[in-house]
Nucleic acid binder design. Structure first.
Lengths: 341, 341
DNA sequence: ATGAAAGCGCTAACAG
DNA sequence: CTGTTAGCGCTTTCAT
């Protein structure tokens, strides 16, 4: 028994395929309820499911969206996926999730593949700016796309972004309010815009408090735990600070490790603040104070924008505000118990 | 300027669309190199990309696969996704990743959606057995599917599984080898087959060492961190054990929290062993000893099986072996330093 | 209120 | 070696 098609339904119900198509698409106008019921019954009976591919071919709408993330193993992104997926489903779209593994050629490859698959739109999230070629190709192919959280300074393209500078600022403020003056920062890669913004916001807060951030207290990481661990270990061996701002939570984990091995107690001897508020972070002991971005909601919003762009040709930029989540890894410095620093 | 189609290429190159189709599909036989080159040049020039939807409609092969995971936020699953995706791409398939959020109706919904989208096959992973309705529907629709890591005792369906019993056994053996005799276990939900297997393997190891696992030392969790935390806290307050086996890493995290709050030191006073070896687990202090499953490879294998089933109609069951990863959270009991237990 | 027919972009016999 | 033709399963004018 082969796949049942609209023809089979039509024959079985004794109507034309046009009629079946009409009830499939809920075309209200003119059609006896009787006919409709009849068709519906047959559809029900044989458990008929229309072939979306065939539909798409004629409507030129595949009802599929693409999402490209740079690294699904970073717990930040599954949250984004969940948000994106839920929103897509709510609008009756399916989502093809692609993991570019931070490799440009993979990203390019997916872009091509998604286009071939005729997705109606693409949500692009990657560590940094789009390569020029990709950007051009994307525009040229006229397929709607939305940028997610990548530094696109001065760029007009619609998307959802986080106010990274504000986030860095909040982190700085928090540390200052706790009385810290000797502070270091582990950043992401230098060429990544988001990372730079977090740093500059942080620096701004310090400056406002008349504090400096010496060049040698700025460690350039890569958003990965292991590198941060190495960096922090080396640094903490040779320098005395009372607080560290890690530009993402993964790197904060690395700092935990380093501090642990050096016998430095958190938060008594060292306050740590992270960035992102990834889910598993609550497993850390002590619990990490961090700058939270509402990734799930950002994912939803991004897809909302994308669908809006698809259906109404208009687009937008929206910027989310990060929030400070105070937990246990930061501490008032005056209250340090018996440890001189 | 509208989307360029095979017709445009044909016109531009001065050949028939059949010829274009032939070069698109690398049909070697008979065709002057000259013609081929000419067509290729035109394709290149206008950056033509064939419409996969139209192709699928005639070939009845969409080159799309579906993957349904129960909870993308559990770090276990992104690894699976990565493996599955890489394997799929290697075979020129795309993957639609769906997150069922542990909700049956979502799973059903995705199943329908994937079928409508005409995926060539489905990789199904969820916490537990397929609902009977889903299973029936799946078989009825004759769409190839592969089961991933769900307890399917006595089931003949092809898929990729982990020898959970062996895993539990390894955990038990390890603890015993370290001299532990007072041991507790936090399991997953009672009705989940995998979870039961881990427990029974664990019990087997204890029994072989002539040790018992009293009923009240078996805590029934739900694979989530928070529940495990509550359970462990309550339990550790009232009972003295030197080791705990948590049936997944997330729950092990919960135990860490509980121990920390109770002032119990790991591993000096309490050894902990987990299950899964999820990526972020190395951020824990001390590093968690655990039973590892190679999720990435399992994901690859599962898709390999699926594609094989699609292309050769034959299927298979493969069982992976878990391995013990000794880190820092378990310790020889005799060497306990000055703490009486 | 319903149906016939054209056609979406492509592949696959079948001809030549 | 290349082109003609007939669909794939569906939606959409345009008739009736």
């Amino acid at each position: 028994m082969d796949k049942v098609t609209i023809k089979d339904i039509a024959r079985e119900a004794g109507v034309s395929i046009t009629t079946v198509s009409r009830v499939l698409n809920n075309k209200e106008e003119g059609m006896s309820n009787e006919t409709r019921e009849k068709v519906l019954r047959v559809i029900e009976k044989v458990n008929y499911q229309p072939n979306q591919l065939a539909r798409s071919l004629v409507t030129k709408r595949s009802k599929m969206l693409g999402l490209i993330v740079p690294n699904i193993s970073n717990p930040f992104f599954p949250e984004l996926c969940r948000g994106a997926e839920d929103e897509a489903n709510d609008h009756n779209y399916s989502l093809i999730i692609c993991n570019s593994d931070d490799q440009l050629h993979k990203e390019e490859n997916y872009l091509r593949l998604l286009k071939e698959q005729q997705v109606d739109g693409i949500l692009l999230s990657s560590k940094d700016q789009l390569s020029e070629t990709n950007k051009m190709q994307l525009r040229e192919s006229k397929i709607p796309f939305i940028i997610f959280d990548r530094g696109e300074e001065g760029n007009q393209h619609s998307g959802v972004f986080l106010d990274n500078e504000k986030g860095g600022y909040l982190a700085g403020q928090h540390l200052i309010a706790l009385g810290h003056t000797q502070i270091a920062c582990i950043t992401g890669p230098k060429n990544i815009h988001n990372s730079q913004k977090r740093l500059s916001g942080f620096q701004l807060a310090l400056k406002e408090a008349a504090l400096g951030l010496p060049e040698e207290f700025i460690l350039t990481g890569d958003f990965k735990m292991d590198t941060a661990y190495q960096l922090a270990k080396e640094f903490l061996k040779n320098n005395r600070v009372t607080a560290i701002f890690a530009c993402n939570d993964l790197m904060a984990c690395g700092v935990y490790q380093a501090a642990h091995e050096l016998g430095i107690r958190i938060p008594e001897q060292l306050s740590i603040i992270g960035f992102d508020d990834i889910p598993l972070i609550t497993a850390l002991i002590p619990k990490l104070t961090t700058i939270r971005q509402n990734t799930y909601e950002m994912g939803r919003k991004a897809i909302e924008l994308l669908i809006h762009q698809i259906e109404h040709e208009s687009s937008e930029r929206v910027v989310f505000e990060p929030t400070l989540i105070v937990r246990e890894s930061t501490k008032q410095i005056n209250k340090v118990g018996g440890v001189d620093i």
